[in-house]
Structures are given as C-alpha cells and as structure tokens.
C-alpha cells in the first residue's frame, strides 16, 4: 500500500467484472433472503466479498452498498469496526497466535515471538510469498487447550514454539495441514465463504477431527472412571486419523 493521500476524494470504486458481479449477486440474494431486514445481511456480505478478494476492497464495499441500498460510507463504517475484515491484501493462511492473558502466560507470547522471528514479519504482516499473514489474536474460547494458535480460524491446540514453527513451514511448503479441531485447511478466501453462510461442501469436512477435543472430555472421562485423556495433541496425527471416526462407533 503506497497510496499517497492528497486529501482529494477518491473516484468511485470500479465495479466487479460482469461475470463476477452476476455470481456474487446471486450469492448475495440468497444471503439477504435469510433475514427479515436486508441490512442484517451486511456482515455475511462483507465475508462474501472477502471470499472473492481476500480482503475488503473498495469494489467490495460498493457491491455491499448497492445490494443493500446503503451508502459506501455506511458500509465502510461497519467493515472497519470488526477485526475479521481485512483492510489490505493478506496471505492465504492467517496465522493467529492467542496472546490474551491465559494463552500468553502459558506460552503464547513465546510462540508469537518465535514466529515473528522465524517468518521475519511483524504483527499483521504477510510473508513475501503471500502465504502467511501473522497476527496476535484475542481469547478464542479454547483456554483449556492453551496455548492456542488459529490458522484460518481452525484450532491448533496445545502449541509450542517448535510445533508452531513446523506448522508455518508446512503451510509455506504447501504440505497438507490438519488442525487438532476442525477440517483440513482451506484458503482464507474459502474460509470466508463459509463465514458468509455457505456450508463447507468438502467431503469429510464436518466430521474431521472427530467429536470433542481431549480437554473437553476431562470431566466426562473422570465421571466414567476412565483414565485421564492424554493431554497434548498438537496436530491431527495423520491424514487417515480424521474423517473416518464413524468406523469406531461401537455403541
């Protein structure tokens, strides 16, 4: 982003190419139909334009405004309020390290420092190859799995500096990466489409990584008189150990 602001109002944003516009309009109409009031569709539509562009562009803002009968200023005001809407081009994989108090204390700060050094980027910066955007994130409701790293909003539980470094190396090398809880990673744009309200249609995506994570079962296992679960699972162990959980269904 090297724009120099001269204080002159920008020209209206360009529209999407006709074919893209037609496709997005069709999706947008489906989203709008879910709500009694059309403006409620704004957050999903901003996710939708991120699924097209990877961040919220001026073209995306114009599109949302036109679909909902809002001004671009109204849409911009909303998109800048929420942290999940990116304001600049970013990587295929958004690696978020929780540095809220509990994860930070348990090692999140060390993991974040390690990744900054290893990748040579700072907070909210992207590697030169455009693969990884690193950022620190707030509490992601997985404190019993601390320290937690999220990649494209899938859970990587019980991380260490070493496991996190391996994780980003795998992402950059294009190796398949599976979270401890969640589905095999898709790109940021594909994730944004799920957030817009379009279900993940990939085979096995819903069942991937099985039922609950080990920490979630701590109390239940004790109640059953079973041995405590092994605590650490830094990554799903192999491509075959997820997605086929149904075959173990013994009850």
């Amino acid at each position: 982003m090297t724009d120099v602001s001269l204080g002159i109002p920008q020209m209206p944003a360009p529209d999407y190419p006709a074919d893209v516009r037609a496709r997005l309009e069709s999706d947008a109409r489906e989203v709008i139909a879910r709500y009694p009031g059309s403006r409620s569709a704004l957050l999903p539509l901003l996710h939708l334009v991120q699924s097209e562009d990877g961040h919220v562009t001026r073209t995306g803002i114009r599109f949302c405004a036109e679909m909902l009968g809002l001004t671009t200023a109204e849409v911009t005001a909303v998109s800048t309020f929420y942290t999940m809407y990116r304001r600049k081009p970013s990587g295929d994989y958004q690696v978020g390290v929780c540095t809220n108090t509990l994860c930070a204390v348990m090692g999140g700060d060390a993991i974040f420092d390690e990744l900054k050094q290893h990748l040579g980027v700072g907070n909210d910066e992207t590697t030169e190859d455009g693969k990884v955007t690193l950022e620190h994130i707030e509490c992601n409701a997985a404190c019993d799995f601390a320290p937690v790293v999220m990649v494209n909003w899938e859970f990587f539980d019980n991380q260490t500096p070493e496991s996190a470094r391996q994780l980003v190396d795998d992402l950059i090398a294009g190796r398949e990466v599976r979270p401890t809880r969640g589905a095999p990673l898709c790109t940021y744009k594909e994730t944004a489409r799920i957030l817009a309200g379009f279900p993940d249609t990939r085979e096995g995506a819903v069942e991937a990584s099985g039922g609950a994570g080990p920490a979630s079962l701590a109390g239940l296992r004790l109640h059953r008189g079973e041995a405590p679960a092994r605590v650490v699972g830094q990554r799903a162990e192999s491509p075959t150990d997820t997605g086929d959980a149904s075959v173990e269904d013994g009850e």
């Binding site: 403006r39 957050l43 309020f81 929420y82 999940m84 809407y85 707030e138 957030l195």
Partner: peptide, 27 residues
C-alpha cells in the same frame, strides 16, 4: 432458524450490541 457468523468484536457478546450487529451495524 438462521445461523449468523459475527466478524470479530468482543462487545457483540453484550446483548444490545449483538442486536445492533445482527441488524448489520457497528456493534
């Protein structure tokens, strides 16, 4: 029943901010 994904804002856990957000506004 409509499932609605938020976009990253702690304040939207406050019930009236949540309603504003669900109406497509800043939370």
């Amino acid at each position: 029943l409509t499932v609605h994904a938020g976009a990253g804002a702690y304040i939207c856990g406050e019930e009236t901010a949540l309603l504003d957000s669900l109406e497509g506004r800043r939370g």
